[in-house]
Simulated scan of single mutants.
Amino acid sequence: MHVMRVLRVAILLSSLVYSTAQKGRGFIGKDTGDGTAEVDQETANVLKSGLTTVFLPVLYIIVVVVAIPTNAMAVWVFLFRTKKKHPAAIYMANIALCDLLFVIWIPLKIAYHFRGNDWTFGEGLCKVLVAFFYGNMYCSILFITCLSVQRYWVIAHPLSEQRRNNRVAIIMSLSIWVFIWLSTTPLYLYDQTVKIRNLGITTCHDVSVIHNPTYPLQDVKHAFGYFLFMAVFGFLIPSVVIIVAYTGLLRILGDSPDDQSVGKKRRKSVILIVTVLVTFLVCFVPSNIMLVVHYSLLATGASDNGYGFYITTLCLASLNSCLDPFIYYYISEDFRENVKNTLLCRSSRTVDRMKVSFSSLKYSKKTNTYTSESGQTQTSSC
Rank of each mutant, 00 (worst) to 15 (best):
N117R: 04
W153T: 12
T203C: 06
T279A: 11
S380P: 02
V58I: 14
G122L: 06
K48R: 04
P213V: 01
V194Q: 10
T214W: 02
I237H: 09
H113V: 04
F179W: 12
V270N: 14
S360M: 04
K30A: 10
V66K: 08
R197Q: 10
Y60A: 10
E123T: 04
P87T: 00
I176M: 02
S148Y: 07
V232F: 09
K362N: 04
F27G: 00
K85T: 06
S360H: 06
E373T: 03
R8I: 01
T184N: 13
V292H: 05
C139D: 15
Y295F: 05
Q260R: 11
C315V: 11
F179Y: 12
S15L: 05
H222E: 01
A223E: 05
I210M: 09
Y188M: 09
S160K: 13
K85I: 08
Y152S: 14
Y246Q: 14
W177I: 00
P69R: 14
T185I: 02
D324G: 15
V351T: 03
T279D: 14
L272R: 14
Y246N: 13
K268H: 12
N305E: 09
F326I: 09
F78Q: 10
K268W: 08
A67I: 04
Y307A: 00
N45P: 01
G306Y: 04
A21W: 01
V292T: 02
T184V: 05
P186C: 02
C382H: 13
R115V: 11
C139W: 14
